[in-house]
Amino acid sequence: MASSTNVSNLIAEQRSKSKRRKLEKLVPFILAGAASISVLTTAGILLTLMVETVMFFSEVSFREFFTSTDMQPLNRSDPSFSILPLLSATLLSTVIAMFVAVPVGLTTAVYLSEYATDKARRVLKPIVEVLAGIPTIVYGFFAFTFVTPVLREIIPMLDRTNILSPGIVMGIMIIPMVASLSEDALSSVPNSMREGAMAFGATKFEAVVRVVIPAAISGIIASFVLGISRAIGETMIVTIASGSNKNLTFDITQSMQTMTAYIVEVTSGDAGAGTTAYYSLYAVAITLFFFTLAMNMLAKWISKRFREVY
C-alpha cells in the first residue's frame, strides 16, 4: 500500500513538472504571437493600400494619374485625378524644409561635437532636443498664426495659406533630428584624426572641414536623407498652413496641397466609401509609403556602404 501512495505522489510530482515544462514550451509561442503583430501591421498596411489602389486604377488610368496635371477629385460632374500637383507640393515643402534643417542642423552638430565645452553641451543639447518633442500640431499652429503673418509683412504677395511658411517650420522641426544624428557621426570620428590635422597646423575649423566632416560624411548624409523622409511624411503642419489648392505650380507663395494633407482632407471630408475620390486616398498613400520607405532604406544603405570603420 505504501508503494501506491508513493506512486500517486510520483505521478503528482511528474504532473507538476510536466505542467511547468508545458508552460516553458508554451511561452515562446505566446511571445511569438505578440511579435507577429508588428509583422502583421506591415502586411496589413501593404495589403489594404494595394487592394484599394487596384480598385482605384480600375476606374482611373495609370497614365492620367501620373502624367495629367489636373486634380479635381471632388468635382461631381467631371472629377479628375492626378498626383502631380500633390507631388510638387510635397517636393517643394521638403526642399524648403531641408534648406533650413541642413545648414542649421549640421552647424549645430559641429558646434556641439567640436567646439562646445562639456558643460555647454550638457545645457544646449537638451534644449535642441525639446524642439523634437513638440507635437506637430503645435508647429502647425505656430506656422499658421505666427510665421505666415510675419512673412506676409516681408513678402506682401504671400497668400494666407502658402507652402513657404510650413516648409520653414517643418525645417525647424527637423533640425534636432539632423543635429543629433550628425553629431553621433561626428563624435565617432577618433580624436587622433583631429589631433593629426591640428599637429600639421590646421585651425579647428580647417580640421573640421577637411578631416572630421569627410570622415563622418556617411552618417551626415544619412541624417539628411532621414530628414527628407520625415519631411515627406509630415502631415499636420502642411495641412494647417498650406491650404488645399491642388494646382501644379512651383510658386512657393501660393497655397498648395501635399500628399499627406490630401489624405487628411479626403478622410475628414465627405467622400463616402466606394467613391473614386475615396479610392484615390490609397493610391496617394501607397505612393507616400514607398517614397518614405525608399528614403529610409537609402539612409540605411548610405550609412552602411560608406561607413569608415575606425
Binding site: 508588428s38 509583422v39 501591421t41 506591415t42 496589413g44 498596411i45 489594404t48 493600400l49 532621414l226 523622409s229 515627406i232 511624411g233 509630415e234 502631415t235 499627406t260 489624405i263 487628411v264 478622410t267 486616398l281 490609397y282 498613400a285 507616400l288 509609403f289 518614405t292 520607405l293 528614403m295 529610409n296 532604406m297 540605411k300
Partner: peptide, 18 residues
C-alpha cells in the same frame, strides 16, 4: 520590419486604422 514600421508616416497608420 520594426525599424521600417517606425519610419512609416503616421497618416498611413491612420488610413490603416480607418
Amino acid at each position: 520590419n520594426i525599424s521600417n514600421l517606425a519610419g512609416v508616416p503616421s497618416i498611413v497608420f491612420g488610413l490603416l486604422g480607418l
